[in-house]
Amino acid sequence: MAADAVEETLDGLGLVDHHCHGAATRALDPEGFASLLTEGEAWPDASPFDTPAGIAVRRHCAPLLDLPRHAPAAVYLARRAELGPAEVNRRFLRASRVGTFCVDTGHAPHRVTTPAELAAASGAETYEVVRLEAVAEAVAAGGVEADAYGEAFRAAVWKAVRRPGVVGVKSVAAYRTGLDLDPSWPGQAEVTEAAGRWLARGGRLDDPVLVRHLLWTAVDLGLPLQLHTGFGDGDLRLHRSDPALLTDWLRLTAGTVPVLLLHCWPYQRQAAYLSVVFERVYLDVGLTLHHVGPARAGAVLAEALEITPFRKLLYSSDAYGPAEFHHLGALAFRRGLAGLLRERVEADDLSPADAVRIARWTGRDNARRVYRLPGESTDDG
């Protein structure tokens, strides 16, 4: 009965997906779908369906397209094309049973749903997360002198976060410079010199001084700050995305804004440590969940929860492109966490009431509290 209560709680919970992206709004041909199925490049001699993520799509997503479980890839793709992107998105987004999506709108190499379009397709509430590097690059593209860059960026960020529905900001410093940055706040002269170098050569914001300036500006905003850590695509240098590299910066910013460590794998234990020693550090294992699939989600969550305070773990999918990932992330989280909590209840490490409470906190209420979303449960019992 205790196990049933945990599973029923998670199955009926309108999850808060505190970090995701939009779903593709244009039809994806087989090559386009395959390119989005993994974080890597296309493989000429192997199918992306022959991966844990690909197997999970065929097993858990095929029935939502009226196909048998484990439908062959070609059959799956043909049915997907037959239904069209709007219907595919509607089915998977609603099947996820997510009540709230917080959408990073700063990454869109493909045409994907806006937060409003995602809300219409899913029936969920949606909020926006502003990507700071995108703001900086827009400031540069608009034309600015080096000595005016620092203030121009600050003004642009403040304007962006004052838009209705914005609940947080995000940085991809792990991609641009790595997280092994000088933790101190750069002075104005240093920012001006760095801005001069960057504006002269153009391109993405990848100057370490300006990334530091970006992170410290985010602290001044007072909003939750999401930081990419761990798992990502081939543009990332994984060893430089270890969240433990942030330790000195977190020490300097302690007590200011909530810092949300995204994804984390394979560094979920390092992230857990940071959540213990720093009061305003939180984590998730999003993105990882749909890549390992429901079969292994519990193992990843178990490592994340070895020492993480139960008020510090959040749910996210980091889904981008195929709406299958919005569904698979939620499914893997529900099943993985339910299995983990069930084991602890059966071992008498948790009471049934505690397990239900942790399920609610992790799937919904922690995010509501951190982002100050409406509807936070005040029942800790």
Results as ranks from 00 to 15, higher is better:
Ser377Tyr: 07
Asp4Pro: 13
Val129Asn: 01
Gly202Arg: 09
Thr253Ser: 07
Leu252Lys: 14
Val75Leu: 12
Pro109Phe: 02
Pro294Met: 05
Asp379Gly: 06
Pro85Tyr: 09
Ala46Asn: 08
Glu7Met: 08
Tyr371Asn: 08
Pro164Glu: 12
Asp242Lys: 13
Ile55Asn: 07
Leu337Lys: 11
Val257Asn: 11
Thr247Ser: 14
Glu8Met: 15
Val191Gly: 02
Asp17Ala: 11
His263Cys: 06
Ala2Phe: 06
Gly196Ile: 03
Ala367Arg: 00
Val191Thr: 13
Glu193Leu: 12
Ser96Met: 13
Leu331Glu: 04
His263Thr: 01
Met1His: 11
Gly202Asn: 12
Leu261Asp: 01
Val98Tyr: 03
Val16Ile: 09
Phe92Met: 02
Ala299Ile: 11
Thr177Gly: 04
Phe153Asp: 06
Arg296Pro: 06
Val167Arg: 12
Leu205Asn: 09
Arg269Val: 08
His19Tyr: 11
Ala146Leu: 02
Val98Glu: 00
Ala121Asp: 09
Pro224Gln: 05
Lys170Cys: 05
Val345Cys: 11
Gly99Pro: 08
Leu301Trp: 07
Arg131Ala: 03
Thr308Arg: 04
Cys102Arg: 01
Ile358Asp: 15
Pro63Tyr: 04
Ala42His: 11
Glu306Trp: 10
Gly196Lys: 10
Thr177Phe: 06
Phe49Trp: 11
Val139Cys: 02
Ala108Phe: 11
Pro183Ala: 02
Ala160Trp: 06
Leu227Thr: 00
Tyr149Phe: 15
Glu303Ala: 05
Ser122Ile: 02
Val103Pro: 01
Pro258Asp: 11
Leu252Gln: 14
Gly202Phe: 15
Gly150Ala: 15
Arg80Glu: 09
Arg58Glu: 09
Glu151Arg: 14
Ala2Val: 01
Val285Ile: 10
Val16Met: 01
Ala295Asp: 12
Ala3Asp: 14
Ala124Leu: 09
Val257Phe: 08
Gly321Asn: 08
Leu373Tyr: 10
Glu31Lys: 13
Asp11Gln: 13
Thr25Trp: 15
Val370Pro: 05
Ala74Asn: 04
Val144Cys: 08
Thr105Asp: 12
Arg59Phe: 12
Ala86Val: 08
Ala160Asn: 04
Arg97Asn: 13
Arg59Asp: 10
Ala152His: 03
Leu331Trp: 04
Gly123Trp: 07
Ala108Lys: 13
Arg90His: 13
Ala299Ser: 15
Arg344Gln: 15
Ala138Glu: 07
Leu205Glu: 01
Asp206Tyr: 05
Thr25Arg: 10
Leu15Gly: 01
Val356Gln: 04
His19Ala: 03
His213Ser: 05
Ala332Arg: 05
Ala119Ser: 14
Asp11Phe: 10
Leu179Thr: 01
Arg369Leu: 15
Leu331Tyr: 10
Pro352Gln: 00
His327Ile: 00
Gly84Trp: 14
Ala367Val: 03
Gly363Met: 02
Leu283Phe: 06
Gly196Gln: 12
Ala338Met: 03
Trp361Arg: 07
Ser317Asp: 11
Gly14Thr: 00
Val281Asp: 00
Val112Cys: 05
Ser351Trp: 10
Gly165His: 08
Thr126Val: 05
Pro208Leu: 13
Gly222Glu: 04
Tyr282Pro: 11
Pro186His: 07
Leu314Thr: 02
Leu340Asn: 02
Ala23Arg: 10
Ala73Leu: 10
Asp349Ser: 13
